[in-house]
Amino acid sequence: MPDTISSNDPSDGAYNYAYLDEQTKRMIRRAILKAVAVPGYQVPFGGREMPLPYGWGTGGIQVTAAIIGRDDTLKVIDQGADDTTNAVSIRRFFARVADVATTTRTEEATVIQTRHRVPETPLKDGQILVFQVPIPEPLRMLEPRETETRTLHALSEYGVMQVSLYESIARHGRIAKTYNYPVLVNGRYIMSPSPIPKFDNPKLDRNPALQLYGAGREKRIYAVPPHTPVKSLDFDDHPFEIERWTECCALCGSTQSFLDEMIVDDAGKRRFICSDTDYCQERQEEQRR
């Protein structure tokens, strides 16, 4: 019962539909169109202070607030789950300020805001996946200066990234990067897929849904249009590969999904279950039928 939660909630009438004022929405909408027109390029936008802290999804929230309407059905996940506290908090925010229906079902959602995962259930034409992005610049940890990285993108000068991946091979015998694994979008821009596990990278490639990425603190929006090639960087002799588990999900038996590891007793016994709670529940219900 989200509406009875707190007495200090601002009275909803004091704020515009979907929280943002119309001028701010127009500014974000223009940035989104530019992002779609130049896939993988980070469009600077006048990010606003949101009533949630920076680092907790303010970029994704601004993108969602700029696109969402009363006809939408919103799903919010964090770590693949609908019931993690931050997902609950963001979903509650939109249910209140945007008068929007919410769902946990991937296939029912028209807009899905996510942190750190891409749903296991394949997305469809017409769905929009909104990613929360902490550090939009894929080269940031290799070159902290914005003035430098902007030039590198302008020149398509991505040697520094290749060198970094090659160093990983030299050290570990393989590319040891596991999440936020860099991708090349439509053969032009290297892009951060946000901190999703590399397990999810193949889902970004030629996905029929529209992918929008919002970084609030860093004030950047970028996009991958439907059906756009998204290639995870690799080398011919060290092709890209995803995580594999020898276990299967303890609840639904899936061997195809990303698994969370839980420690179930003091002796350190492990149990693995699907990170995508909707996918897991759908499979369990199907098995019961």
Partner: peptide, 25 residues
Amino acid sequence: NVEASGFVQHLKLPHYVDFQSELVI
């Protein structure tokens, strides 16, 4: 400080998917 405080404190949010990836590798 609003940006800094948010980003430092966002480390409190769950990161277990990324951590799982790290465990695997």
